[in-house]
Design a protein around this nucleic acid. Structure first.
Lengths: 269, 269
DNA sequence: CGGAGGCTTGAACGCTCTCAAACGATGTGG
DNA sequence: CCACATCGTTTGAGAGCGTTCAAGCCTCCG
């Protein structure tokens, strides 16, 4: 299971895994747990013992500020790993909350590290994953520091569409993982998918107020960049959004694989 | 040399290294190179083949935006590693530039990864370092998204003081690494050290304009939180600055070691 | 059908930016 | 040793973007 996720994240870019590596990974037995929507999975400052793999559903990690506001650090899509940044810390840095009904596979951090210690290839993969997470965070940081609300929102819409798309390799195994709440099944693979997500979540992710997010979305709608279907958002002018976001597709690669997009650039998750 | 840095970064928190591990590390022969002040070491999008250890001097990684502005991603102090976030990428994500005269030890990424593959303990250390870097970036991101200019600047001043302090373990071996330009030698260990750094650098690090940085610094000066000695800044009311920054000292630990501070929290680098 | 939560919109405030100009320190060449 | 050039700092004025507060509306769900 962990293996599937790694394969999904790295594509053909990672090192070759031997049969022995596969055996080591198979020995990692996760616990599966599901949570209803808008449910707290972890609070901040709890002990951090597990690495989570998202099986289906959407969730996000967040941090509360002293003034009561909330900063969402990242949104997690099926097939992605949660908790890599806390791999070496004994306490959680961030809370984890679900948006939709979500099921995770819980891997013991200690066991994962133990497995890595047994195999250079697995170590390399783990280093790659963590290091790539850092690259993604860097993009996000630059975006927050230097982009206007319009740019951030345009980019966010494109990014979500991209990451949802990356999750599709999971679909055959997992069913329509996202469709339940965020994507209509028939739209899942169409270029202009429909996205449903509270505007407050977008605001907390981008460091904006939900009022302003709303205003910018209205402007996008008036300029026919997006259109709304009920409370959902559908992207109608992808190129126009890319112009606004300053999107530079596929400028960075690793081992020939096109990659994850955050900030102005793209990276694998 | 790499070993020294790791020891400095992790304190007693890391795994025990065997003699074999030490031999592996000793086999890593770095190339030493020095650069004058305000010199480009790397540009963005160049091939990324090396991991750098700062021997002495100050430098920073940055990214240029389409509009010509510059975002500084991190400032590097003696004893810190540069390039961990690019460990798994073939091209550099950010440029590297010196502030003062700086000397680095260049380690080949491929060789470092190779060494890790030979030793579980080294792998664990590398994962720890990268993972901790991510934690620090997260803090920085939250700060940029949710803190006012005043908070960011107060925090920046405290953070620099803290990180300079952490560099002191290098001093006996390396001499007064920082004193040449940023700290007067006699102030190096005093609680209120003097910092010299162009305001434009502070601005580009915090996502502000240098004009506004100047204004806030003036306000701090008028409130006797800091005082200036020529172009240098000296912190005169640490507690006052902590109040403004929302500094929560030592809330997070790893293996019993007090750690690095960015954002409202503290982490080892 | 009623309530609750999220979305929408308006108005006013304030933080930070941009532009612009003067000042000061530092270093260089005559 | 002085004159000058250069770069960073300082300060003011004005504009813009995003926020807060507040109210009304729409949708979905029980």
């Amino acid at each position: 299971m962990l293996l599937n996720s790694i394969v999904g994240c790295l594509g053909d870019a990672g090192p070759q895994l031997s049969k022995q590596d596969h055996r080591i990974l198979d020995a990692l037995i996760p616990v599966q747990r599901s949570f209803g929507r808008n449910t707290r999975v972890f609070d901040e400052d709890q002990p951090s013992d597990y690495l989570l793999l998202v099986e289906r559903g959407l969730s996000f990690t967040f941090r509360h500020q002293e003034d009561g506001s909330r900063q969402i650090i990242d949104i997690h899509f099926p097939g992605e790993l949660v908790g890599l940044d806390e791999l070496s810390l004994s306490d959680r840095l961030s809370g984890l909350m679900t948006l939709t009904e979500t099921s995770f596979l819980f891997f013991r951090k200690a066991e994962v590290l133990e497995s890595c210690a047994q195999s250079p290839a697995l170590s390399e993969i783990m280093i790659t994953l963590v290091s790539r997470g850092q690259a993604r965070l860097t993009e996000r940081m630059v975006g927050l520091a230097r982009h206007s609300a319009r740019q951030r929102i345009a980019h966010f819409l494109l990014e979500v569409r991209f990451r949802v798309g990356r999750g599709h390799w999971l679909r055959s195994a997992q069913g329509a993982a996202l469709s339940s709440a965020f994507l209509k099944p028939e739209e899942l693979l169409r270029p202009c998918s429909v996205l449903r997500m509270p505007q407050a979540v977008i605001a907390d992710t981008l460091g904006l107020s939900s009022v302003h997010v709303n205003r910018v979305l209205r402007e996008f709608r008036e300029r026919d960049l997006i259109c709304s279907c009920g409370h959902g958002i559908s992207l109608s002018d992808i190129e126009g959004l890319k112009d606004i976001a300053g999107w530079e597709p596929g400028e960075h690669w690793y081992g020939g694989q096109p990659v994850m997009a955050i900030g102005a650039r793209c990276f694998a998750s």
